[in-house]
Write a protein that binds this DNA or RNA. Structure first.
Lengths: 331, 331
DNA sequence: CTGTTAGCGCTTTCAG
DNA sequence: CTGAAAGCGCTAACAG
């Protein structure tokens, strides 16, 4: 194994110079830098992660804990989130890895804690009263939650600003005369503000609970017909179900958006433009949001002392694709 | 931060004794062991992963690289595999993490290599001519491939013994008089031996290519009716598609197994017993297979020298659930 | 702009 | 059965 010392000898500089070339933490003349870089290449030197972590007193590894990674049909959104986090932290020299957790067992979390392996954690898909939140907090491990469970979440988090997002979507629908709007969700944890928003716009909101799967969406039009006949527009928080719904819509003779308008508020743009018709959305840039989440975690890790918990909320602008239709006069 | 030294002082022993209590690498009197363990608990000591890795000269982290983790509908099988690997390696004191790879970018693989972070790698969902295989081999990084791409794979691997599995399935079907058997696959990389098996049993095999999704399976019965009218039995390598198929089967008036017999050969038992009717399978214990894969990697890591590449093949016995029907006499 | 050096916390050999 | 001590390869403070 080649070490920093070998490289130093080869380049004819001191060991610390090699380190500083690699870290960029002090200025180096172009000449020596070039020589060092060359020596690194010819020697095939690879830095030793463990030594760096030990000497630096910090673990530059960020672990992502994703609940239900394999038990729910994985949405593309998870992919965008992971990619964003990885990019967000690796820009600061950190590595992002996924720490596998089985759903019915806490030993995974334990072993993470006990190993002192990870310098920080990002919790994804947290449920209400998720024990891990308390645990990491108590153990004083830097962590950020991506997607909070309560509006007044008291720890570091990054999430969409659901309230703003809904106002954007609803105000657009209200402008077009919709009075009964269905809201597609798969759990009701974060819907506390909906009433307030609804009354502000003098609209009736109907919470519709379907699983976020293509099949869940495929059943939707009959559910609406049977149970929510007054609904003329949908705001959807579900990506897979929305796509499944749109695919089946014309089969069941439902025209989008003439018969039913739909706005996706939690769907990637690549997904929204791939549907037929393309979906009107409130922009959801999961990648950027996750990247910011990664950066927040790095900040937290680097000022591990003090600094109050902060929340970062992400909204997005309206992207009109299929025109949202006015409610028919016949109504 | 409490260190081993603190614990040693508290317990009134030397630092090395603490280490040996933890590692179990030499015998310790019950008395001191108890005292040390107690001191560990009261001091809240947590071992420092980086220091251990540096001093020990090895990284006890195993990274799993799973292609398309988020772009294919995640099958439960991946979950079982990951769980198996984690358990397999953690029994030997290793940590298993998932290293996220974006499908269109090699920088992830690079950064893994350059960081010297991982002591060993498990490659999953490898494609034919996967570049990573060559790369890890050249860089001399211990790795095992879970699911090979060729029958004569020249590196360490763990996989199902497809040939044996198929013989089990086919011989059962042949016993019941089936002469045209459809084989459900989503890629044709490993089908080279099928011809041989088919001729051995004087059976005609029809490769049927459907995506491994519930929707893919839902379309299957019409595909068979239209394109493969002679087929009276199916051997399926696809889990999600098979489940989708069975769900739709009776809707389309197809009786299982009377009209079409089906044997799942790549489906978890929990999935197979949840279908209606329960699926006849050739047992596929993904968890145990993956566990063995993790153990193989640990072996490779610990004798990093020499030792020729080895392959471990897993077969399974027939589990008859729905009786496989005899071909109708009318044929 | 560059070199020297003291550790980081642990593993493991050597010596009892 | 237990202790002492030499590093593992790197970071970062200190000294030019």
């Amino acid at each position: 194994m080649t070490t920093r010392a070998d490289v130093a000898k080869l380049a004819g500089v001191s060991e610390s110079t090699v380190s500083y070339v690699l870290s960029g933490k002090r200025s180096i003349s172009e000449k020596t830098k070039k020589r060092v870089l060359e020596a690194i290449k010819t020697s095939g030197y690879k830095s030793n992660y463990a030594a760096a972590a030990l000497a630096g007193g910090n673990s530059k590894v960020v672990t992502m804990m994703i609940s239900n990674l394999f038990t729910t049909p994985s949405s593309r959104i998870n992919g965008a989130l992971v990619e964003g986090i990885v990019d967000g932290v690796s820009a600061h020299g950190y590595h992002g890895v996924i720490w596998p957790v089985s759903d019915n067992d806490d030993t995974d979390v334990d072993s993470l804690l006990k190993s002192n392996f990870s310098g920080g954690v990002i919790l994804m898909n947290v449920k209400e009263n998720d024990q891990r939140v308390q645990l990491f907090n108590r153990e004083n491990i830097p962590f950020v939650v991506l997607g909070r469970t309560q509006v007044d979440f008291a720890y570091n988090y990054v999430d969409r600003d659901f309230r703003e997002v809904e106002i954007t979507a609803i105000s657009h629908l209200v402008d077009f005369g919709h009075e009964h709007i269905g809201v597609l969700v798969s759990n009701f944890g974060l819907t506390s503000h909906l009433k307030e928003v609804a009354s502000k716009f003098k609209t009736k909101l109907h919470l519709i609970d379907v699983p976020n799967t293509p099949e869940g969406g495929a059943n939707l039009s009959s559910i609406i017909r049977d149970k929510y006949p007054k609904v003329t527009a949908i705001i959807s928080f579900l990506d897979a179900a929305t796509i499944g719904f749109l695919e089946k819509a014309h089969e069941s003779g439902l025209r989008i958006p003439e018969d039913l308008s739909i706005i996706g508020v939690n769907i990637l743009e690549t997904q929204a433009t791939a549907t037929l018709p393309p979906l009107t959305t409130v922009l959801f840039d999961a990648y950027e949001m996750a990247k910011s989440c990664g950066e927040l975690l790095v900040e937290v890790m680097e000022n591990s002392k003090a600094s109050k918990p902060q929340g970062r909320l992400w909204t997005g602008e309206l992207k009109i694709r299929a025109t949202v239709a006015k409610v028919r006069d016949s109504k």
